[in-house]
Design a protein around this nucleic acid. Structure first.
Lengths: 256, 256
DNA sequence: GGGCAGAATACTGTTTACAATACAAGCATT
DNA sequence: AATGCTTGTATTGTAAACAGTATTCTGCCC
């Protein structure tokens, strides 16, 4: 008796019922306060590209343990927001010049498509949301640099949201962040990110359902943004010497 | 003397030289064998959506420790290839019906743009590569299901590669994987993923630099792919009973 | 016989400590 | 004075043990 029961139990264990989990809110990762904190710090340019993100420091700063920090950094690394180098640590991602150009090209593609989709499915609620944001952006304090940065980014996010495609929205969010890093890496000091004057025009064209015009305006806006960066990255701390060494190192790595 | 030296040393410590790391090959994460293994297993449909990915089992399967497995799973979770549920473990991601539609819509946008860019910058090497792949796809053994799956995916990847935008390529790769999951979740049993007959047409149009035609063909191809899935997900093993249990569980979880 | 509480079990999540690596200062040498 | 080596320190990577949770099995009651 006992033996047969034992066998039966073993057989059941080998093939469990396997209840497939379905309706679970999957935004557990992005709700992580560490991820959120680093993300906002980067998008607000309080963390510059190349800045070291030490695990202990972050752990004490966020009041948590190194494991959570490591998980958050790993997550951000897979989103190309931080760069992890073995045995050296994590740094704020610093895109190459080619990557920066690719990011802008991708934004041209995705955001023009988002504009088109947004116009196609624009309803009353969407119009209201768009108008509300334009109002907000029109009357905000332009001297408050951090608020400006958040607001201008929000406009693009809102357009992607109005397109009604979650996948596209996530991609836009990611590209927005990486744009922020690209601009921080290659910008001429003192220039703003977006030319904010373009947003009201684009918004008006969307509200008017002028698809061709809105697409053109968005593409132009992104092109203007791209024009503000230049390939030279020898800013403040990076002098000629380190640039030479970097090139040598890269060449050695490519050759071996 | 000693004390002044000590102070000096401390001051130096507080602000280190901070050599910013630059040209480092960043594909360290994707080279991880665990990530690679799970990815190929999923793209070859050997792992079905909803399949449990136990840490111990994976660790022994890959001959490594749980730490690496956890890192890999975390990475895959941030790419929406696996779903992590607290205290329950990791499962192969199972997109919702809406998400599946969004994935196809995103692919329409990105891959049509990729086709256009590929035609714009098509050179001799690109033509050769494309021809070689078409040759390969034409003469492959259609009964070898796994090879078929890899080859049809490779075609789309190749087009994205010819577009010459690394960011776009990464996005295409990600969307391809998620398409694989969407099809595995919602396909009618027995149907293939891509209609492989479309690839030679698209390839020929690209080689002929017929941009409008190639874009149209690619869009049509993806639309045909999308038509093959249906919103009902009560397939083989998921019978009415487990569906009921799932609903009950979800409700209990939401209520408590 | 079927449904339900309680215990055993397997699994995930976390903490801890330890090992390995890279970095920076100090020292000797030329 | 500058370069190369050695030592010490800080930080990252890894392993193992522990705690908490969900799941499964068992015995009981209806």
């Amino acid at each position: 008796m006992k033996r047969s029961r034992h066998l039966k139990r073993k057989a059941k264990r080998a093939e469990p019922k396997r209840v497939v989990p379905e309706a679970v809110d999957p935004r557990s990762v992005d709700d992580d306060p560490v991820v959120q904190g680093i993300l906002t710090a980067i998008s607000q340019k309080r963390l510059k590209p190349g800045a070291k993100l030490g695990e202990d420091k972050l752990a004490s700063a966020f009041g948590t343990t190194r494991i959570h920090i490591r998980q958050a950094l790993s997550h951000l690394a897979s989103r190309k927001v931080v760069m992890q180098i073995p045995n050296r640590g994590a740094f704020v991602y610093r895109p190459s010049w080619e990557e920066a150009q690719d990011i802008f090209a991708a934004r041209r593609i995705i955001e023009t498509a988002a504009v088109a989709a947004a116009i196609d499915r624009l309803d009353k609620a969407g119009k209201a949301e768009l108008k509300a944001h334009m109002e907000l952006e029109a009357r905000h304090d332009r001297n408050d640099r951090w608020a400006s940065l958040s607001l201008t980014a929000e406009f693009h996010i809102l357009v992607a949201k109005l397109a009604g495609n979650q996948v596209l929205l996530d991609m836009s969010r990611e590209l927005m962040l990486r744009t922020s890093l690209a601009i921080a890496t290659f910008e001429q000091p003192g220039e703003p990110d977006c030319s904010p004057d373009a947003h009201p025009d684009i918004g008006a064209l969307i509200l008017a359902k002028d698809k061709a015009g809105a697409i053109h305006a968005m593409r132009h806006h992104i092109e203007e943004m791209e024009k503000r960066i230049t390939p030279r990255d020898d800013k403040d701390e990076v002098d000629e010497l380190t640039a030479i060494f970097q090139e040598i190192g890269a060449r050695a790595r490519a050759g071996g």
